[in-house]
Simulated assay, not measured.
Amino acid sequence: MTVTNRLNVIRQSPAYWRVVIHNPPLNLFDPEMFAELNVLMDEIEGDADLRIVVFESGDEDFFVNHHDLASHGVVPDQQGAASFDHWPSFVTRLAQSSVLSVAKVRGRARAQGFEFALACDIRFASKERAVFSLIEVAGATVPGGGGIEWLSALVGRSRSLEIILGADDFDADIAERYGWVNRSVPDSELDAFVDAFAQRVSRFEKRALEVSKKLVNARAGVPSEGDLWVSNHVLAGVDAWPEASAMLTKLNAAGFGQSRDFELNLAENLGSLSSE
């Protein structure tokens, strides 16, 4: 096991890695996590034997949470560090990589955490514990990490509007029904199910996996880096709105990014704050 600050990389075999995401207490997506993901992406692309990577969480309540706004704009002094406007480049690399990426979602995948799961090639979710939400509109802003692009391709216009404009929580069964997760799996079976899938794929010829993924990407309408960059750029402007600033003040006072109780029921709490 290679242990870093946010990501624990477990090499199950030369062809199959597990990446356990652990950033207590709330698994917030912060600049350090982004830096480590960029370094990991370099390692993934440079490994000739690797075929499949499974991303999972070390916190059963949070897969990957929203962006850590307290550190927004910070670029840490460490390998792989980059500003948030480099996010479209990372997810494009992930989507176009020769390695298959799987999100094993247990706990809350909100905002950027949801967008990270969407950028993975395949998503399996805990029936009892997975929660998905794009909360940005409830905070007087917009999704800027690819959620709009990925959801539009996966679930269509009307359901994308429901998810984005409603800014509410969705469980794994609805996610499967709508089409943004491959399967909703009972939590007690999730680990074994994903491991069996990953072990199976890891035994196949890498070139066959790579070419098949490229062919599917060409036909499935994978968002381009340019499309992702547009939303990322729009978000930067929206964050400067006075409405967004006022809402952020409310959120911080209520415990956003600080209180586990507030974060566990974030979508519900946001709805109450927005109506005040």
Rank of each mutant, 00 (worst) to 15 (best):
W150F: 14
F90E: 12
D77Q: 05
F132P: 04
G80N: 11
E56H: 01
D59C: 14
R110G: 12
A140V: 10
L100W: 08
D77I: 04
W180E: 02
D168Q: 10
A172F: 02
L161R: 05
V75L: 03
I135M: 11
R106M: 14
F55E: 00
L50N: 06
F55D: 00
K127G: 09
V181N: 07
V74P: 05
R123A: 14
G80P: 02
L50S: 03
S160Y: 14
R177V: 15
S133M: 10
I135W: 01
V105R: 11
D47E: 06
L100M: 13
W180R: 10
D61S: 07
F132K: 10
K127N: 10
G166T: 00
S188C: 15
D171L: 02
A175H: 14
A125E: 13
Y178D: 11
D61T: 05
G46C: 05
P76D: 02
F114G: 01
V137Y: 06
G73C: 09
W150G: 02
F62S: 05
L69R: 12
L151G: 15
P88W: 10
S152N: 06
F124H: 05
D173W: 03
L69C: 10
I174Y: 09
K104D: 03
G156N: 04
A117C: 09
L154D: 08
Q96P: 01
T92I: 02
V91N: 07
A138W: 01
E43W: 15
S160H: 14
F114M: 07
V64A: 09
F170N: 04
V64F: 15
D59H: 07
P143V: 06
V64L: 10
D49M: 13
G156P: 11
D68I: 00
I122M: 00
V142A: 14
V131D: 03
Y178L: 14
S152R: 12
E43S: 07
S152T: 08
V102S: 07
A140P: 02
D61M: 03
A130I: 02
A111Q: 14
F124C: 02
D77C: 06
F84D: 04
A95W: 11
A82F: 09
R183L: 05
D121W: 12
G166L: 01
C120E: 07
V181F: 00
V137D: 06
G107N: 02
S160K: 14
L94F: 12
E60T: 07
A82D: 11
A111I: 03
G147Q: 05
F170R: 06
W87M: 01
R129Q: 05
V105E: 02
D59F: 03
R157S: 13
F55Y: 13
G179I: 11
N65M: 08
I164E: 13
R51Y: 12
N182P: 15
D168I: 11
D171N: 14
A167E: 02
L94S: 12
F124R: 00
I174G: 05
D77P: 01
G147W: 08
A70L: 10
